[in-house]
Every structure is written in structure tokens, then in C-alpha cells.
Simulated scan of single mutants.
Amino acid sequence: MSANVLTVPGIQSCKSICMSNCSRCKKKMEAMSSAMKTMRDKRAQTPPTPGRNLERELAEAHKKLTNPKPSYAEAAAKSPTPQPNHTLIVSSKDKTHTGEHVLQIIREAIDTKKSGAKVERVRKARNQKVILKCSTKEDMEAIQNKMRSRKEIKVEAAKAANPPAHHERDINLKEVTIRVRYRKRARNQLQCHPVLELSPSVHKRFLEAGKLYIDLQKVAVYDQSPLVQCAKCLGFGHTKAVCGEKTATCSYCADKTHEWEKCPRRKQNEEPKCKNCWENGIKTEANHEAFSNKCKVRQKWDEIARSRIAYC
């Protein structure tokens, strides 16, 4: 014979309740039954509050405390913030043209160097189409007007939202100095990272902008240290072309028997070792490559190099 077990706090258990069915147990059971019947009757008479569920409210409160981030459904239910979409769709009327042909026609029509038109992003699409995205409505309209003279292409404006605020400040062109010092190689063989020498006012403006419009793309701008570090001996103040060392030093493990490309420690993902920190007695903080900005020796030489530059 099975029985459901109910635990009621505050009432002592009686061992004879199931064995002898004593009078004391009968009285306790009757009292409990009467109390539970009163509770059921009271609950039935009290109408539930519309729209409220105590268990659900407790569950939601617990969820907010344990997981404050909204779920995917909650995030999707919110109305999205409108974003600017100043986009032009350019296609060729000649079916033999490819996306590259359309792109060349766009370059000739816009001539960003003379017109000053700014294209934030460009990509090729299907059916000989090229998508041009601009940061402002004014740039989009200026580019659209310039390409209307080319009859071999078709220009359509995509649905656009409200443009963001756009502000330009004047620069004294007499004080502007922009000179290409050298070009750094990129992973893509068709690209490079030019390093420019700028006058103080232009240098400040470039860093404040963070992005520049060049040709049909928007590129990032970073501050380049004037410090020169040798790629052969890993020393400072000279280049590899005038280095007096006979053998190169690995910039990853400071070994002179191989270079970075063939470093076994690097290929096995072992901890690097900075040659300059190790030789200057900073062995406990030498767990980085020689060209790393974390290097204490490099930071010291960088400060010396920057002290000779007029940043303002």
C-alpha cells in the first residue's frame, strides 16, 4: 500500500500514526484537513488578478538578475535603430561588360582626386552591378550627378535613411605638408601601407578623423612611430642596409642561427624571447617579440625618437 508523503513545518511527527491509528493522530489529521479545506475555499472565492502570475513574475525577475542580456527574441522584437544607407547601384547597359569594366567607368566619371567625391565602400554585385556606399547624402548626390553624363551606365539610388551630421573644418593649405616616406608591404601583394610625413596640423586632423577617403575606398589611419629599427640585428637607429652584423637575429627567439620565418619555437607556439630586453637585463619581461610595442627598450628609444619630432 503506497501513500503520498506531505511535510508540514511546525507539526511534530507521530510514529504511531500509521501503526495504531491513535486518537491523538486522528485529532491532528482532522485539524489539518479542516485547515486545508478553509484555504481551498478561500482561494476559490478570491478572483485571480488579471494579467498577473506570481510564478511567472518570479521567473522573469530571476532571469533578469542571472542573465541581464536580452535574448535573441527580445532583441528582435525591439524596433531597430535607423541607419544611413546612402547607396548607389551602378550597372552597364552593355551586356558584354563585366563588373571591372563598370568600375573603370566609375573611376573615370568621378575622378575623386579632382572632384573630392567620397566613396566609403565599393563592391561588385551580380549582373555587372557595382554598389557604391557613401557616408552622406551630399556625397551620394554629387557622385550620381557626375555619372549621369556617361550614357553607357545606369545609376540608381537605393532607399536611403536620414544622413548623419557632417562637418568640415578649413585647413590653411600653405601650412600643409604631405610626403610619402616609404611603403610597407601588406599581406595582399596588390596592396601596400604608405607611411606619410605630415605637418603637425595635418597629422592631428588625420588622427582625429581615423579614416580617410582614397580613390574608391575608405582606409584607416594609424600613428607611425619615427623610430627606426634594424630588421637584421634588431637594434635601433639604423636600417638593415647599413647594418654591420654578418648574420641576422631571429626577432621571435633571439637566436642567430635562423630568421623569423624558420623559427622552430614560433612554429611550436612556444613563448617568444626579446633579444633587446634580454641583453639589457630585463629578462623577466622579455616574453615578447623584438618588434613588439610591449618592449621596454623599444619604448625608451621610441620616446627619444619622438622628442625630435614637432607634433604641435
Rank of each mutant, 00 (worst) to 15 (best):
W301T: 07
L190P: 03
S34C: 09
T112D: 00
V195C: 07
D215Q: 02
C250Y: 03
H166P: 13
P68K: 08
A286L: 11
R169N: 12
A77H: 11
Y222P: 08
K114C: 10
L207G: 00
E141H: 02
N145R: 10
H86I: 10
E74H: 10
A109L: 00
T66D: 15
C14M: 10
V102Y: 01
P200C: 01
K78D: 13
S91K: 13
A109D: 03
C295V: 05
Q104S: 11
I106T: 07
A109Y: 03
H167F: 14
W301R: 08
K93R: 01
T38A: 09
E55R: 13
K246E: 11
C134T: 07
R266N: 00
Q128N: 02
Q229D: 06
E285I: 01
R148F: 04
I214V: 12
I304W: 08
T38E: 09
L212I: 09
K267L: 08
D94C: 04
D139C: 03
K240P: 07
Y222T: 14
K300E: 02
Q189L: 08
K300I: 01
G51L: 14
H193R: 12
E289A: 00
G281Y: 12
C274Y: 06
E57Y: 14
K93H: 02
D41F: 11
S307F: 00
K151L: 06
W260G: 01
S91F: 12
S23C: 15
R169H: 12
A157Q: 08
W278N: 14
G281W: 10
H62M: 14
R148H: 05
C295I: 03
A310D: 15
H193D: 12
V130Y: 00
I171L: 11
S34D: 13
A117R: 04
P84C: 12
D223R: 00
H97K: 15
N293Y: 07
V176W: 00
I282A: 07
N293W: 08
S2D: 08
V176E: 05
G10P: 04
E168N: 10
A254W: 07
K262G: 05
D255P: 05
I106P: 01
V155I: 11
C312Y: 11
F236N: 04
K151P: 01
K129M: 09
R52K: 15
I17A: 13
Q144C: 15
Y222K: 12
E303T: 09
A286K: 00
A61V: 15
I282Q: 02
K246Q: 15
L216P: 00
S225V: 00
H258K: 03
Q224I: 01
A310P: 15
A44C: 08
E55F: 15
V297H: 04
N287T: 05
P80I: 08
E285H: 08
K275H: 12
K113Q: 11
V297Y: 01
C274F: 05
D111G: 12
Y72V: 13
G281F: 10
M147Q: 08
P164Y: 11
P82A: 05
Q128L: 06
M1W: 10
